[in-house]
Write a protein that binds this DNA or RNA. Structure first.
Lengths: 335, 335
DNA sequence: CTGAAAGCGCTAACAA
DNA sequence: TTGTTAGCGCTTTCAG
């Protein structure tokens, strides 16, 4: 009834624990008959190996930690799904932690996870210098960064090319005749924010568009911050006019749209807009033009890299850059 | 450098392992001076307790398993986020598994999780008789069902009142003058599907609306199946006319809209529609009328119940029913 | 206040 | 082929 152990089975069969272990694990050669007896009794008692004990012995928990800022976002949900799919095939399971975009929580979780001896870590960090994950990396555990990549040596990461993403957005807006393009950037303390900003600036330069610091607003990835940033841009529109805006995260995009609506303006009639990570839920609705990340591909790649690193401690870190995607919706108007 | 252990610290300080353990855990009384020495050395070696060893000893992993059909759905993502939030405060972490709506995967994952000695389980099952989770429940581990609730004795569950959800949808459609109301139901093998169907039928009866089996189509919660089901309803519309449709899951709702669009029909001009679990991403867009579940509340409640059950092995199972919410969008027209 | 000893359940040499 | 021994790192009586 209660969970049985190797010891109990061994005792009942007058065998040693190791023989029972061998019979059950099938790794080593065991007499066919004793093996049969062991297996039968194990069946009868519905013996279940205790993985905790096994982990302690093997110094490996077959567990991958996944730490990210917001699991309710489709972007992260999809990535997690793919990672789980990939690693579960090899017996690994995921310990998940949601940091709510907070560095203190990230630290707390990484601490807990380290104590729990996870074998590897996938981290969408909000900690820009990589200190929070240093222990894992120094300890030789595979760490793969997604979304944000800290400034540190020898980092493994899988992200899109954020600079290129901004370039694509600006280039598309220019192709539609826009000359004054505003942007809303998430925290520039994080690489995603910093790189998207850099890409935006580079694009303006390369495409000979006018630069204006007043057309750059900042948020923190959350909806409310997109709303506030957009509102600020709109209030200052007389001084710093613009016909289009590039918003660099999904939730901020919705927030920006909230502000536009509140100001009784229309998209794309009054303002053209390109968002980020916005997915159409259904045809026939309003389609928000958006830069998107190939999240399934990211997840699959992370899973694959994880498995490979878990086997062979690959040496050097590499940052895999994927192509961003541009979806032209109906929120950009030619002017 | 490498991870230190109590043993190492004990040896270096010529103390016993137990004293070092006591000093670090602070549970028992230790001489202030030795405690200080221990703590200093622990600090110096950045000692990290091995939770795996601790778990083995304590027969508790401080881990909660969360098993669900699709983590990329906002509904589940939000629930997971809230559960994590709640239980992490007490030191628990989540092991997450995504079953892709497949009973075989669910079984496999539950097996792995059982071996890993999780302390509790939150399960959005696709296994209707509850066999997959029997071991957990018999073993006295807290199991809380969400979304689907198996037909078994003494079950703990937190869901919305699905019958009422259907009633609300039908009632609203009737109030807008609709008399022939079609529906698309997810698997009737699962309680969510069965109850929503039952609620739909009850509502028609109670509200004196005509019943017609041809107006009931089935899907499997996925988008494609909603598309196919809607297409079937539309093709048969001459025989079985309807002016409104109630679709009982988010992805099927999008699929149904796909089919409506493909048939060159408009919502709500040609067909009124109420979906399920559809959330507005942004104001100003097309608003899909929808029954919604209070997912944050569900997640918070699950977290709370989990914690309470983890402490005191509460006795009887209880099914907590929450109120569904009705959001009137612009996809229902008065006729 | 501290140490010795036993053990959580399992694995893995090493012998026999 | 099987058993013995020795842990993995920690907690927890029980003595002292």
């Amino acid at each position: 009834m209660a969970d049985s152990t190797l010891k109990q089975i061994a005792k009942e069969l007058s065998l040693s624990v190791s023989t029972v272990s061998r019979a059950i694990n099938g790794k080593s050669v065991v007499n066919a008959d004793t093996k049969k007896r062991v297996l039968e009794l194990a069946e009868k008692y519905s013996y279940t190996p205790n993985e905790v004990a096994r982990s302690l012995q093997k110094c490996s928990t077959e567990t991958v930690a996944v730490v990210l800022p917001d699991i309710s976002e489709n972007f992260f949900g999809t990535i997690v799904k793919e990672i789980d799919s990939a690693v579960s095939k090899e017996g690994y399971m995921l310990l998940l932690a949601d940091t709510h975009e907070r560095a203190d929580k990230e630290n707390k979780y990484l601490d807990m996870l380290y104590k729990r001896q996870v074998d590897a870590l996938v981290l969408a960090t909000v900690d820009i210098d990589g200190a929070s994950s240093a222990r894992f990396r120094n300890g030789g555990k595979p760490v793969i960064f997604i979304d944000n990549v800290p400034k540190a040596e020898n980092i493994d990461a899988i992200t899109i090319d954020n600079k290129k993403a901004s370039f694509m957005a600006v280039e598309y807006l220019k192709s539609q005749g826009h000359k004054n393009i505003a942007t809303i950037i998430g925290s520039k303390e994080e690489t995603t924010g910093a790189e998207r900003l850099e890409g935006y600036r580079d694009a303006l330069k390369k495409l000979c568009l006018s630069e204006n610091e007043d057309l750059i607003a900042f948020g923190d990835y959350k909806r409310e911050s997109g709303y506030i940033a957009m509102k600020k841009l709109l209030e200052n529109r007389e001084n710093a006019p613009f016909s289009a805006v590039f918003v660099t995260s999904e939730k901020m995009t919705y927030g920006a749209l909230d502000a536009i609506k509140e100001a009784s303006l229309s998209v794309p009639e009054d303002i053209s807009l390109i968002g980020f990570d916005v997915h159409e839920r259904y045809k026939g609705g309003h389609k928000i033009a958006s830069i998107r990340q190939p999240e399934e591909e990211i997840g699959k790649l992370v899973g694959k890299q994880l498995l490979s690193k878990l086997k062979n401690q690959n040496a050097d870190g590499e940052h895999i850059l994927l192509e961003p995607l541009l979806y032209k919706g109906d929120t950009v108007k030619a002017v």
